[in-house]
Design a protein around this nucleic acid. Structure first.
Lengths: 186, 186, 186, 186
DNA sequence: CATGAATGAGTGTTCATTCAT
DNA sequence: AATGAATGAACACTCATTCAT
């Protein structure tokens, strides 16, 4: 079962959810079709299972957001969060994209995605408020923008081989976000 | 042919590229399957045609980016650009997403997308340089982040019914970007 | 479409509904799978279509039942009816059996079968009343028995190669039924 | 093994032979797939085993048919036989139907069915001869009709919830058959 | 004796594409 | 140019059967 969901993640990541054939997954897991349907009701069910895992990690992430203020510590906290977000995204990218664009008819997958992102959005929103958001920016717009930036930037660095690993990029991203969204009041 | 590509855009937008059936498009255009294949080699070819249009508009957009500096005019120029970008995205969203995530095997579609986005990215990058980017931020990271923000925010406001029309959100977005990416040197 | 439903009837008759593969039908009709699904939503839908035809013929049969009394004419009327019933059964046997035993989840097929048989049963019931049923026999039991005899006898003569064609058997059956169910009061 | 064949009978009765999954049977018997194939070569083999039991009971029934003449005792004998037949049918209906319509490729099942029914048919045939069949009815037709009536009527009362238990129906059926098939000479 | 995870051939169904009219 | 009936390769999913434990 683990072999199958791992294979699923790999194959989904490679070809995208809809382009992935059950046969591909089964072959990647070195099992049979029968085994696949022993553990998952259907292809969508596998995505749902992955979505559950992903949502869990995302919500753990949301719960662990430390205060992000103008201090050095605040910067480090943001950096930590961003690093962990990108790492998680690297693993679960396909799932996240599957729920962002609603490629899947299953409402459950959607629900999980919305919930996970809402958790993160509100955690970040709270930190923004604490740090004092500028009054001339609509808070909804700010959170939307931040989430958009987060999600898409993660995609960009995880799909192309931008050398994200050397932390240079993470630091730059942290600076941009820290300045643009959190130190505004400073 | 125009009827077909219009229908294609509508249907793609509604269901996504891969979920769209040639039959849906043909029915939306009130034509026959035969006619479809008279004008397009296959389904992907229609997407390619739409991608050409989209790339054209995007490159026009890139060419028209006015200086974005700390002045009131710079702010207005950015605001103009963002508004036009979101509007274009609203129309061509599916196409753009089809090339961002490479949902399509056709290399041509990819090429068009990369080129269009590169044009915009470099136009913005040049404006950022002019406005004086902070030295502690990697330029590539900054451009990547800005493009990510742009693309995904546009998606967010065009898919959900965030009342983007009242310009409130556009103004907020402009402020965030102006502050975060362009006024850094100020 | 006619070719397909004819082929369907042949194949169903040969192997039974559930044992018939769409592929068998398609091959028998010398067409392709695609064509099958062009005219029928699925395998069950073909059965439903056949059931509609069958029900129609059965109800026509029911409507045409002439008085069955102790006279020579009554005997002839019964004989006519029985002959026509057996003939119809010969053509539609599979369909009828599919609805008698509810081999099919489709409620519509059931409904058609129940309705058709009810029509015949009540037509015959009415004729039995006219001819004066014996008071010591429950009318429901009589009709049930008659329908049972009709249905199963038809099956017996249509499946095995009992030489039913020489009318000998039809005459015998008519005599038995005339005597047992209709001349009781005489 | 007993648990399995009992479960088989129950499941077959509920869903019909072809619609029954080995898994259903195994679950109903609270055993495992492995155990099933320990006792039966395959699904059909279970049906064959049940058919053996059924054929045995049917032949016992055939052997015990008492004279059916115009006397009160003859009537009672017929009534007894019919009651027992219906009871047996109630238990083994699925098996019987499986062999009547040849739903099963196994020739053995067929053979058992034909033999059992032939036994009953000839026992009844002999009784009919004794009671003096009318000369204008073909004996084969008469026996065929009687068997048809028997089989299908039993099915009707065992599947639908016709209140057969109150013996009313059994009495009516007995009267019809006694009159129609056995008292003809009277 | 018993288990149940694993198998894979087989089946229903979809849909992009073709081509005779 | 336009049509739409026909095609068949491709795919998701099922289930009888096996076999290592």
């Amino acid at each position: 079962m683990r072999r199958l969901s791992d294979a699923g993640m790999r194959v989904f990541a490679e070809r995208g959810y809809h382009q992935s054939r059950v046969d591909d997954i089964v072959r990647a897991a070195r099992t049979s079709h029968g085994t696949f349907y022993l553990y998952f009701a259907n292809k969508e069910d596998l995505l749902r299972a992955l979505a559950v895992d992903c949502a869990q990690e995302m919500e753990a992430l949301a719960a662990a957001v430390e205060p992000i203020n103008a201090t050095e510590q605040g910067f480090e906290n943001l950096r930590d969060f961003l690093g962990r977000f990108v790492t998680t995204y690297r693993r679960y990218g396909v799932v996240i994209r599957a729920w962002m664009e609603d490629q899947v008819s299953d409402r459950e997958v959607d629900r999980l995605g919305v919930r996970a992102f809402t958790h993160i959005a509100s955690a970040l929103g709270r930190r923004m408020e604490e740090s004092g958001v500028p009054e001339d920016v609509d808070p909804t717009a700010a959170v939307t923008a931040l989430m958009a930036l987060l999600e898409r930037f993660s995609y960009a660095v995880s799909s192309r081989d931008l050398g994200f690993d050397d932390d240079e990029m993470l630091t730059s991203l942290t600076r941009l976000i820290h300045r643009g969204f959190f130190r505004a009041a400073a």
